[in-house]
Design a protein around this nucleic acid. Structure first.
Length: 270
DNA sequence: CGCACCCCCTGCCGGC
DNA sequence: TGCCGGCAGGGGGTGC
């Protein structure tokens, strides 16, 4: 669910609804997420105004008026909702806050792979270690080629490495590789100049289309208003094992490495 | 360095 | 119908 298009969709919504608002009555559940939620988080947020909402890779950064940032990672099932009035607590609510206009913000995460913490955005290791943004100029054919040269690892693993490019996950990497005509199992060092260039362009094209669709909702992802994204209808390979390729009519294949699946079209990808 | 495998946790789905 | 195993989009760690 939450890869760059989903996180960016959430960011846009939060920016529109949260900037200029002050947080009150902040409560954290005390349940551990991927890491324990610091008890000081509620204090750090209480009374603060949100001045901007930014995204870096799959992280959301809600900048606060004291110079800190509230940093949110959605993990696999994390979800931020804003409702008109405070409601009955849900079993998976890990943080609640009342806004100064009376609405209620919640962070929900059934699987608890998410992260919540407060820090100076420019000093946090999680953010500092991220690679380039796919839409920035720094992500280009030269950059990608430099990282591919002399790398025996699979191109799919390289694209999913957040230290190289930030924001891609399993769904979009599969779609990007299809769009570029490159098989997920190809060794990074075997890519031609032309193929790395194709991958860069395909990355931006696939992510742009997914953004326009409001992200992909396969099971969990919901926008802050509870509505689903629509990109699942445009997927070419992900989750389509055995289905016809939209381009050549061949059968989509699935290959597993560990617990993660790769999907590709043997006819369209080399 | 690459990768296979393990973990974190809950929910859902398909098969029996 | 009901139970159970398998599987899931994230990331981190270990050991070979």
């Amino acid at each position: 669910m939450p890869e760059l298009p989903e996180v960016e969709t959430v960011r846009r919504s939060l920016a529109a609804q949260l900037v200029g608002r002050r947080l009150f009555a902040v409560e954290v559940s005390g349940t551990r997420l991927r890491k324990p939620v610091e008890a000081s988080l509620a204090c750090a947020l209480r009374g603060r105004e949100v001045t901007a909402v930014e995204r870096r890779g799959k992280y959301l950064l809600a900048h606060l008026d004291d110079g800190n940032a509230w940093i949110i990672h959605l993990g696999m099932t994390g979800c931020v909702t804003i409702s008109p009035r405070p409601g009955a607590p849900n079993g998976h609510t890990h943080l609640r806050a009342v806004l100064d206009d009376g609405r209620e913000l919640r962070f929900l995460d059934p699987r608890r792979f998410g992260l919540l913490f407060v820090g100076r955005a420019d000093e946090v290791a999680e953010i500092a270690g991220l690679g380039v943004e796919p839409f920035s100029r720094r992500f280009n054919a030269e950059y990608l080629r430099r990282h591919c040269l002399a790398r025996k690892r699979r191109i799919k693993d390289l694209l999913m490495d957040q230290r190289i490019v930030a924001g891609l996950g399993n769904i979009y990497v599969n779609e990007i590789l299809f769009a570029a005509g490159v098989r997920p199992g190809r060794r990074a060092s075997s890519l031609t100049r032309r193929e790395t260039q194709c991958l860069v362009l395909a990355t931006r094209r696939v992510l742009s289309r997914a953004l326009r669709a409001g992200g992909t909702s396969i099971s969990d992802f919901r926008k802050t208003d509870g509505s689903p994204g629509k990109f699942q209808h445009e997927l070419c390979v992900y989750g389509r094992e055995g289905c016809r390729c939209r381009r050549c009519g061949g059968r989509i294949r699935r290959a597993r490495s560990g617990a993660r699946s790769s999907y590709y079209c043997p006819g369209c990808q080399r």
